[in-house]
Every structure is written in structure tokens, then in C-alpha cells.
Simulated assay, not measured.
Amino acid sequence: MNLEQAHALRSQLFVPALSERFVDKAHQRGADAIIVDLEDAIAPEAKAEARRALPGVVRRIAAHGVPVFVRVNNDPALLNDDLEAALATPLAGVFLPKAEDPAQVRAVAARLRPAGAGLVLLLETPPAVLRAAELAACCPDEVIGVVFGSEDYANALGVVPTMESMQYAAHAVALAARAHGRAAWGVVGSLAEFGDLALLGRMARAARHAGFTGALAIHPTQVPVFNEAFGANEQELQDAAAIVAAFERALAEGRGAVQHQGRMLDKPIVERARRLMARAGR
């Protein structure tokens, strides 16, 4: 998967590699991509079994035309074997959890390079957030996305991942990712929230306003919330089209200053409208 495709992903859904029920229905959940998980969703004693099942699982999901990523284990005893198994599949890319060390990122990117697979970095610790810009700048041909892992980050600080406590770190990760042209995925708050979808929606919209381009879902009910928050509704698309049309009419008439519905239109406003329309395929 390339950078342009990564930027278009509003939602990605985690699916445990050993859950037949979730694997069978993965392509029906409405997510823009699927992440087959070898890490948190797999018990330590089942890691080898999950790795053996991985190629078949990825192929089954990818056969439905859905991009499939794999989240590996960032553990010296597991990482190399996980990468080898992932690279034997038709994957879109690899999610590297607990990414902190630029040297390790470069080493993993080198493993992925021959296969043309993208690399996504999960920044889940205080050192990772402090190094967000350096990590996002690593390997421009391989790193396609950066994720803010609010749960592990909050645990490391000993705080609850609320919108308030996660604001600084989330903004720092989004800024670093977007400054280096990477997609940015996450919410400003707790990703574990799926009981209160209104709260989840507020956290997702806060993330979009911070510069995030999408989010990762750990439950199917979160997918439509993220698709809405990081997508564009019909009214937003109509407004964007009207802005572009008004600006282009003014240029055709030789006017540089454009008034539209009570505000002046300048290049940044018009470019935002164009990007919104492009993201929606308009």
C-alpha cells in the first residue's frame, strides 16, 4: 500500500488471527482495511499457532478485495518469525507495535522493502511520543502511517486515557506524522470505548481536527463511527463543491478576492475543499 492509499483509510478493524468467527465476517464490517492481529489479541501460549494460521487468514480476507495488514509482536523472540510469516501473505503492510527505536524501524523496513509492503508505526510509550518526528521521518519509502496508541501510553504515565489527558500526546503524534507526509491514525482518548458511541464520536472528531486521517477499531461497532468522523457527509461535500465553484468563477473573471456565504475565500480554504472532495472521490 502506498501513501495516497493509506491517507484514504478512515477505519481499520483488528481481527484476531485465531478467531474464525471474526475472520469470516471481517470483510462485512464496513472497515476500509483489516488488521490481522498476532499481538495483544493472542495469548502467549498461542503465538506459534496464530503465526501458522496467518497466511491462510490473510488470503481469505484479501480475497474479498479488502486491504489486509498484520500486527506483529515487537519481541526479539517473536518478531523475526512474525515478519517471515507476514511476508508470505498478500498483505498491504505491517503494523510494528511499541516502535521507539529508529534503528529498529530501519531494520524492519529493510525486511519489507523487497515485498513492497508498507510499514505502520504504533507510538505507544512516552519515549515514542517524544521521538515522534524522528520516527515519522524514518524510511520515507516504507513508512506509510503512524498510530497513537493511547491505552499503552496512558498506562505508562499512570493516568486514565481521557480526551483531556491524551490531548498533548495525540496532537504531537498527528503533527509529526503529517509533517512528514504520513497517514495518522488514532483518537484523542480511549480506543477501548465502544459502549458509549457518542463519546467515541467526540474523540474521533477531536482527532480529525488534530490532523488524524483515520482510526483503528477494536470492535465492529466502532467502524461506522470512524467512517463518519473521518469521512465527509453530503452537506460537507456540497459546501466544498460550492467553495471550489465560487473560487473558479472568480478566477475566470479575473478576480483574486472572493466572497462566499459571508467569508473570504483564499487558497488554503479552497485547497481544503478540494482535498475533501478528492478523498470522497468527487
Rank of each mutant, 00 (worst) to 15 (best):
L3D: 10
H7V: 11
L13K: 08
L13R: 04
V15W: 09
F22W: 12
V23S: 01
D24C: 03
K25I: 05
G30E: 02
A31L: 00
I35S: 00
A48V: 06
E49P: 00
R52C: 04
R52H: 09
A53T: 06
P55V: 10
V57S: 07
G65N: 04
V66F: 03
R71S: 02
V72H: 02
N73V: 00
D75Q: 15
L83V: 12
L87W: 06
P90R: 00
A92P: 01
V94D: 05
L96Y: 10
L96W: 01
E100L: 07
D101C: 12
V105Y: 10
P114R: 07
V120P: 04
L123I: 13
V129P: 12
V129S: 06
A137K: 01
C139F: 01
C139R: 11
P140F: 09
D141L: 09
G149D: 05
S165Q: 13
L175F: 14
A179D: 00
S190N: 13
L191P: 10
A192P: 05
G195Q: 14
L197K: 10
L199A: 15
R202P: 10
M203S: 15
R208M: 10
A210G: 07
F212V: 08
T213E: 11
T213G: 12
Q222I: 02
P224S: 04
F226R: 10
N233H: 15
N233A: 14
E236Q: 15
E236N: 09
L237I: 05
E248N: 14
E253S: 14
G254T: 08
Q259C: 10
H260M: 11
L265E: 10
L265D: 12
K267A: 06
V270C: 08
E271F: 06
